[in-house]
């Protein structure tokens, strides 16, 4: 599955889950107390310091997070061409000010960060919102069974390396 197909499959998958697909840079202002469900891919000019590989991320925000949210996430990986049973998936827990969650390792390498955002102060109980950020390069490397990002097929004609001045060697 080409890199761009992975993005398309993830878009379709999350849209089916009821997410609004948001182009990068879209500034959403929600109604107070309203529900929110967003998804979309984004690229960064500088490598983001989030512990994930590469410069492309797929970000999903689910507020409130449904009970089966982890399973929904695992199924999204399958939609992107990854067979869960052929890999080791680890959920390394962390608790911090930014929230409570996991660094998700795929075969020992960082794949995604899953965070339950801290509850907003006051106004009684609110169910937790979840933010899931997946490193698309890592996902594509596994899905395409490649070793180097530069060799990833971006589209039928172009590789990741050709599109990024040979980056990812």
């Amino acid at each position: 599955m080409d890199f761009q197909d992975i993005i398309l499959k993830l878009d379709r998958y999350w849209a089916k889950q009821g997410c609004a697909l948001l182009p990068p840079g879209g500034a959403v202002r929600r109604a107070p107390g309203g529900q929110l469900c967003l998804a979309g891919a984004a690229g960064c000019a500088a490598l983001p310091p989030d512990g994930l590989e590469g410069r492309y991320r797929y970000r999903v925000v689910l507020d409130p997070a449904p009970a089966g949210v982890r399973r929904v996430f695992l199924d999204s990986l399958r939609a992107a061409g990854l067979d869960r049973s052929e890999h080791d998936v680890r959920w390394l827990a962390f608790d911090g000010e930014a929230g409570t969650g996991w660094e998700i390792l795929l075969d020992g390498l960082p794949l995604a960060r899953f965070i339950y955002l801290p509850a907003p102060a006051g106004a009684g109980f609110r169910p937790a919102a979840a933010e899931i950020v997946t490193g698309l390069e890592r996902l594509a490397l596994v899905s395409q069974r490649k070793k180097r990002a530069a060799d990833l097929c971006w589209s039928r004609r172009l590789t990741y390396g050709e599109l990024h001045g040979g980056e990812g060697q």
């Binding site: 080791d88 795929l106 075969d107 020992g108």
Partner: peptide, 22 residues
């Protein structure tokens, strides 16, 4: 040596991933 969690399918993927992480 290391441990993965669950089934023993796709051992090669896990070996390569662990090696790259190390």
């Amino acid at each position: 040596a290391a441990f993965r969690d669950g089934v023993s399918k796709g051992q090669r993927n896990v070996e390569d991933g662990f090696r790259a992480a190390l």
